[in-house]
């Protein structure tokens, strides 16, 4: 939609934007490598017979949470400016769902 810059000139601050893009690319590659690593760890945790389920399940859920954060913040640009509303609605939805689950698991059924 509308360009946020004051000037319509595409070449304004080209050097700055190149540096910025390169930096972002680096972050994405690092996040990507980490995500693959986390996936491998998850597979290993499930595959290793010695670990009990009581350890493995919370552990891979935790890894999944980290993956979601990487996905949102590094690949879907939620760390950038102008993503306050998506963040508000994601956290709002998570809050409502957590309260629901919490209510079910504490007062409704147990």
């Amino acid at each position: 939609m509308t360009n946020q810059m004051n000037s319509g000139n595409e070449r304004v601050d080209l050097a700055y934007r190149r540096r910025k893009n390169a930096e972002e690319m680096r972050h994405q590659v690092i996040a990507f490598v980490l995500m693959i690593l986390l996936t491998l760890i998850a597979f290993a945790a499930v595959g290793y017979e010695e670990f009990s389920h009581w350890f493995v399940i919370p552990f891979i859920l935790l890894l999944a949470g980290v993956q979601v954060a990487f996905q949102l913040y590094y690949f879907m640009h939620m760390s950038h400016k102008g993503h306050e509303f998506p963040a508000l609605f994601i956290y709002g939805g998570v809050l409502v769902m957590l309260v629901l689950v919490w209510a079910f698991s504490t007062i409704v059924w147990w």
Binding site: V99, A103, I107
Partner: peptide, 21 residues
């Protein structure tokens, strides 16, 4: 509005704690 749905179900038998909350 999201925290009160079970007030439609007081007689279902959720127990006194759930009903009270």
């Amino acid at each position: 509005g999201f925290m009160v749905w079970a007030h439609h179900m007081f007689t279902v038998g959720m127990g006194p704690i759930a009903n009270a909350i």
